[in-house]
Design a protein around this nucleic acid. Structure first.
Length: 367
DNA sequence: TATCCGTGGCG
DNA sequence: TCGCCAAGGAT
């Protein structure tokens, strides 16, 4: 720890803070979660921003806050509605953990977001980064908030050559932030490091000539800014072949299924589908799967409508899409619904299944 | 520690 | 087309 941070003692901390904060005060983007310091809104924004770009989050944040303006509103909402508001944003456990944590805040902390590291870190979905972000931004408490931006920026400024892909690296950067952070304005300091990483000190080809803290940057002075940070690559993803079918009833309703409570796309809705094992007759395999699992008699039309690729961070689905008819079903099973196309809009679907529906609708209107 | 967990954009 | 990348957390 001492050796990797050897350059930190050469940084003029007062000047560094001054230059960084002056830049952020002048250049910070006008973002919807920066309009006030409501801890709830800061919290929502930080959860949404996990592994997600600012431009993607903005419309989701605005809609979410409009629909669930307060802790009370989110705590008492239906999970279905929360997931619908999250639809398309990804990492859906974030939404369920957030609502669960908000309910805990309502019950345990009288509806006030706690302001101690220990209490706030114990909330579902709140890890070291989010904890520090909320404490510093909403409460002005000088805690580090180390995300990918901060690790990249500080690895360059301090010329730190450890692998930022390793979980153990984060504590090195937390240690650095604890030494560098402004106690007068920890909120702006943390946000400024992230803003710098997002706008100037970008992953490839950083704009050093525009950088407000270039003068303090060891990586720049050594000419190695483009080689930092050190980040090992992750393994490539595996491909899984899937088949899916949009089943219509006589009166033009469709069959949908709610995914399991845990795992991939948990609690989202989908069209009946299964992994293709029988490469010779995937259609028959899908029919048999549906008859067995859903207790339905179905007739799947021959011929694949389209093939949809759904790329996740750790695997890829290749989905062959069919249409078909629901011939008979005995009784209503849990997590299974037969709905009109209008009612479909109330249910949250993963992006791939939204595409399935759009393609099938386009196909139908043609004929 | 390594893997799981989404999605869209970009070079 | 493809790999990489983004304000991470849970297990």
């Amino acid at each position: 720890m001492k050796e990797v941070l050897k350059n930190i003692d050469e940084v003029n901390i007062n000047d560094f803070q001054r230059d960084l904060l002056a830049w952020f005060s002048a250049e910070q983007r006008d973002l919807p979660w920066r309009k006030d310091r409501d801890p709830y809104k800061v919290w929502v924004s930080e959860i949404m921003l996990q592994q997600t770009k600012v431009d993607t989050v903005i419309p989701y944040f605005n809609r979410f806050i409009e629909k669930f303006p307060t802790i009370e509103a989110l705590a008492t909402a239906d999970e279905e509605d929360v997931l619908k508001a999250w639809e398309g944003l990804g990492y859906y456990s974030r939404a369920r953990n957030l609502q669960s944590a908000v309910q805990e805040v309502k019950a345990k902390y009288d509806g006030k977001v706690p302001d101690s590291p220990k209490e706030i870190s114990s909330l579902k979905g709140v890890g070291p980064y989010t904890s520090g972000a909320i404490l510093s931004i909403a409460y002005g408490i000088p805690e580090p908030a180390v995300d990918g931006n901060v690790m990249r920026v500080l690895s360059r400024i301090l010329s730190i050559w450890i692998d930022i892909a390793k979980p153990s690296s984060r504590k090195v950067f937390e240690e650095a932030v604890r030494k560098l952070i402004s106690h007068e304005n920890p909120s702006f300091f943390n946000q400024a490091l992230m803003e710098l990483g997002a706008i100037i000190c970008t992953p490839t080809s950083p704009s050093c000539l525009l950088c407000p803290v270039r003068e303090h940057c060891h990586g720049f002075h050594e000419g190695v800014q483009a080689e930092l940070p050190v980040k090992t690559k992750k393994k490539s993803t595996r491909i899984v072949k899937m088949s899916a079918v949009v089943l219509f009833t006589e009166d033009n309703k469709v069959v949908i299924h709610k995914r399991p409570e845990e795992g991939l796309l948990a609690n989202l809705w989908e069209f009946p589908n299964t992994e293709v094992v029988d490469l010779q007759s995937p259609r028959k395999q899908l029919e048999q799967y549906i008859e067995k699992e859903y207790r339905m008699k179905v007739a799947i039309n021959p011929g694949v409508i389209t093939t949809i690729r759904h790329v996740f961070s750790h695997l890829t689905w290749e989905i062959e899409v069919y249409t078909g008819k629901l011939l008979h079903t005995k009784k209503k099973l849990p997590r299974l619904e037969i709905v009109t196309d209008e009612e479909l809009s109330k249910y949250a679907f993963p992006v791939s299944h939204q595409k399935i529906w759009k393609t099938v609708v386009a196909e139908k209107t043609e004929s």
